[in-house]
């Protein structure tokens, strides 16, 4: 996994609540069997005026110029400002893959849906929860200032605005450790293979029906 330590980038404000994973990456793009290449279809139905198809060249498609990411001032944005319950809906990891592929490294919102939140960490994407007043303040500042950039320092757990304001955020110690070091979860878990085997031996005694049941 990609490391995340310190990041500075242009912030883009997506001002709507309950942005769901169907909106982040519509279902027709989930047919890919790869992890990469979802960026051009991020927010497809908001971003383009026509219906997108998998494997289509998006460069000639009609753009919805009102959509925030199509505005030149937010070109190259890597920090997404969002509203409550961001990422609700399905478990598709294609949502963080699409955000990552587009170039986002950080999403800041007052709340996230659980599965999406968890999926972000598996992909080197940092979801940050700030309170509503703080998020409101950032929305106002980004809309008022062209080229507005935010810095995120994961080690210190702060978001830093251009004027030097610092917003502290919480992050689970384990997830922080994995992001800072770009660690692979599976490798970490396999270090505990003996614990897993010991659990299985014990569990087999207690609930034998949970073992050796599914076969042709």
């Amino acid at each position: 996994m990609k490391k995340f330590t310190l990041h500075t980038g242009i912030a883009a404000p997506l001002d709507r609540a309950n942005v769901d994973t169907d909106m982040i990456i519509p279902k027709q793009f989930l047919k890919s069997i790869k992890r990469a290449g979802f960026g051009p279809n991020l927010f497809d139905e908001l971003r383009y005026l026509d219906e997108g198809q998998p494997d289509q060249d998006c460069s000639g498609r009609p753009l919805n110029t009102e959509f925030v990411l199509n505005q030149p001032r937010y070109a190259g944005a890597s920090v997404l400002l969002a509203r409550e319950n961001f990422g609700c809906g399905s478990s598709r990891e294609h949502a963080p893959w699409a955000l990552d592929d587009y170039g986002f490294r950080v999403i800041i919102a007052p709340s996230f849906a659980d599965i999406f939140y968890n999926n972000c960490f598996k992909n080197g994407l940092l979801p940050i929860v700030l309170n509503e007043a703080q998020v409101d303040q950032l929305f106002k500042e980004v809309e008022a200032n062209q080229g507005y950039q935010l810095t995120v320092d994961l080690e210190r757990q702060v978001v830093i605005s251009p004027s030097g304001d610092e917003f502290a955020f919480e992050v689970d110690a384990f997830r922080k450790h994995c992001l800072l070091n770009g660690l692979d979860d599976i490798g970490l878990t396999l270090q505990y293979a003996e614990d897993i085997k010991a659990y299985e031996t014990r569990r087999r005694q207690e609930a034998p029906w949970l073992f050796d049941a599914i076969h042709n």
Partner: peptide
């Protein structure tokens, strides 16, 4: 529900 990275994690561990 889980994401695909976790599907892989469960398969492996």
């Amino acid at each position: 529900g889980i994401g695909t990275s976790e599907v892989e994690h469960v398969l492996a561990t």
